[in-house]
Design a protein around this nucleic acid. Sequence first.
DNA 1: CGCTCAATTGAGGAGTATCAATGATTGTGG
DNA 2: CCACAATCATTGATACTCCTCAATTGAGCG
Lengths: 235, 235
Amino acid sequence: MASTVIRLGGAPSPLTLLLNSYAALSADDAAAVEGALGEVRTHPVSTDFQLNEVHDQPMTLISGWAAETVLLEDGRRQIVRLLLPGDVIEPGEARRAGLSVTPLTAIRVGDARRLVALLNAAEGQLGRAWRRLRQAAQNRLVRHVVRLGRLSASDRTADLMLELHDRQRRAGVAAACTMHLPLTQEMLADHLGLSIVHVNRTLQQLRRDGLIYYQGGRAVINEPERLAAAAGFGR
Amino acid sequence: MASTVIRLGGAPSPLTLLLNSYAALSADDAAAVEGALGEVRTHPVSTDFQLNEVHDQPMTLISGWAAETVLLEDGRRQIVRLLLPGDVIEPGEARRAGLSVTPLTAIRVGDARRLVALLNAAEGQLGRAWRRLRQAAQNRLVRHVVRLGRLSASDRTADLMLELHDRQRRAGVAAACTMHLPLTQEMLADHLGLSIVHVNRTLQQLRRDGLIYYQGGRAVINEPERLAAAAGFGR
DNA sequence: CGCTCAATTGAGGAGTATCAATGATTGTGG
DNA sequence: CCACAATCATTGATACTCCTCAATTGAGCG
């Protein structure tokens, strides 16, 4: 994770920090990213509201969490991707893949049309950061397949926590051993491919083992190394 | 599925048929694709041999099956993607995602450097076909997440069979209700996130239900509709 | 024929799901 | 302010899916 400090008038946006974590940006690059952000809108949390029915343009998530989901006929749901602050949402791509984009909390999104155009055309460090960021998103999907296919409930959960912590640290919204976790156990279940009840028991297990404390929208990771060992494959 | 018939000297390659199934190609386009294919190499099936350690350039699979896999520390394996005739293999992308490319059968691969360059630059129908083909690969990964996260063993298996049948029909290597299935039950298990024993029992169940007959490297799908119903979400 | 690998079968157990009920918290209207 | 509804977390009981281990059968193949 690159450690260049970006100095601007206000606090840098999560996306700027995220890009900077993949390749150190110059002050000019950072300013260009900040400047390309368009109008900001707010959406409430909503079960059935679909972001991709409202906006069809790229957006960046400024605050709050969202998800790309699939709804099965019998009502079961699978969260395919979690979207965190700093992430770029592309409703068009989601729709082509049969996914709905749903807010999991209240969210603020910024119009990212100009931003995505800028990033796609970028060379040098900025272009590199953008490509790595996209590659990382793809890698997370691959890793999620492995989690669902081959890890036990507690390993899955542990591995997801490490992923979420890493992503939030990159985006500058998490401390060394604590992070936001604004998900209900039902949302976790829908992402991890488990039942609500079992997620509850798995979290209790991890807490008893001193690995993860989770309460009121925040989680504390005490010993990342031990947690990583629990997750059972390279991170 | 487009139905334009491509006429050339020899039989069209699976990739040409695959592209044509996503957007009808002109004879010129088809000839260009055929002409851009480079040297063809053969590889034996091998557990530990990794295609991406040998070649680093894009290839297209001419015959045989391969897989992008993750190996866990304890020896468990997850097949993330199955690669069938006509598919384009990008070892570089696979490596960046932590995946190994492994032949599941003996395979023939063609050098696709020029081909990929051609396709990336293509406009019109050919460009459209190439974009759709790549989008379809991405959609399959999403669908695989849903399978692993939310479907039962038999639903997963049924859904995978439908996917494999559709892909082979597009590539012109499967009949209306029969297809190649050159996978051992262990390979199926590694893809479906199940144990070998359970795959065996699941296949027996599907056979007893008259849905899938599977023997000696071939599978017969009797009633796609009923099988799709078993799979439990839209296809 | 003996070897190896794949497929199959049985038995038993671990891991998860489902159903149902209870607290705990929060928001809402009276 | 309180009663009420709604949501979320938690717990217990039970059933089922799926895994593991172990052994057997069957099919190439040198």
